[in-house]
């Protein structure tokens, strides 16, 4: 059943060199291996999706790529630099060019929407306030929140907060964006707009995008390449078309949302009956 873990074994062309290469990634939380010897590549200028069930380690993978946590083994290279070997200064230089949209949005609650989007510009550039205003309004217009610029994060709905955070994460025109669950909590219209937005941003600005999601249909509709993650390893990967045609049981289960299959919905646990103490004790 185990799939070969070699990203080049399928259809993708070898050049140009990938923006991110992950080799032999191993990472533990306590005794539990979140990743076991994972290899993957993120191609430049493409939208790559990483899908997998809840708790599979998708957010953890993004944090590893962003250098917030260190792998226990393996290498993660972003644009030729090994993230976890960089000093803090170099890591921060690299991070100015990468950007991450957090699952929760993570807006600064003491700043208005406008100031949130302006934050990275004010921290990292010496632009005049007038220019910053223009840039911020452009970013907010792109996510449809120009009118909400004076609201505080506590006054936004979950979906609006996510979009405001998206505006903030594109403020510095990064070379890549990592989206953690961009679609959850969005209504169908906003979802459509977001899908188009992610695609447009990617193509117009020449970005590289990584989408982490379990919204299969939406993600498959914009992704150029998909990795399926389950129980610590990549169970399959390929373009949406290839995966659609794949006969793999994982793909079957995940893409078609079947409750039964090789992927478990349960966090690893002792046998149910044993947990409920039914196994040992005779029933009364």
């Amino acid at each position: 059943m185990p799939m070969p873990n070699t990203p080049f074994s399928r259809s993708d062309p070898p050049d140009p060199p990938p923006l991110i290469t992950v080799r032999g990634l191993t990472f533990y939380r306590g005794d539990r291996a979140i990743f076991r010897d994972v290899d993957l590549d993120i191609q430049r200028g493409k939208v790559t999706a990483i899908m997998g069930p809840s708790g599979a380690g998708k957010t953890t993978l993004l944090r590893l790529i962003g250098g917030q946590i260190r792998p226990h083994a393996g290498r993660i290279e972003v644009d030729g630099a090994c993230v976890h070997e960089l000093g803090r200064r170099e890591l921060y230089q690299l991070r100015k060019r990468m950007s991450m949209l957090f699952q929760s949005g993570a807006l600064f609650t003491d700043l208005s929407v406008f100031d949130n989007v302006a934050f990275p510009l004010r921290e990292h550039t010496r632009l005049s306030e007038a220019l910053i205003r223009i840039l911020v309004l452009m970013k907010l217009e792109a996510v449809g929140l120009r009118g909400a610029r004076d609201l505080m994060p506590s006054e936004l709905s979950g979906g609006m907060a996510r979009r405001a955070a998206l505006a903030r994460s594109i403020a510095l025109d990064p070379m890549m964006i990592m989206y953690d669950e961009p679609f959850s909590g969005q209504d169908p219209i906003t979802m459509g707009v977001l899908i188009k937005l992610i695609r447009t941003l990617n193509d117009a600005l020449g970005l590289t995008s990584i989408i982490v999601s379990h919204d299969v249909k939406e993600t498959a509709s914009i992704a150029d390449y998909i990795y399926l993650l389950s129980e610590g390893s990549i169970v399959d990967h390929g373009s949406p078309q290839t995966l659609e045609r794949s006969r793999s049981a994982w793909v079957e289960q995940f893409l078609h949302a079947l409750p039964d299959g090789p992927m478990s919905f349960h966090y690893p646990a002792a046998a149910y009956a044993q947990d409920l103490s039914l196994a040992q004790e005779p029933s009364p």
Partner: peptide, 22 residues
């Protein structure tokens, strides 16, 4: 503590802003 819980500090780090200085 609340900034940490709501990932604001992580977000700041990912924006290459050091929470120690900021």
């Amino acid at each position: 503590g609340l900034m940490k819980t709501t990932e604001q500090l992580s977000a700041m780090q990912m924006m290459a802003v050091d929470p120690f200085a900021r």
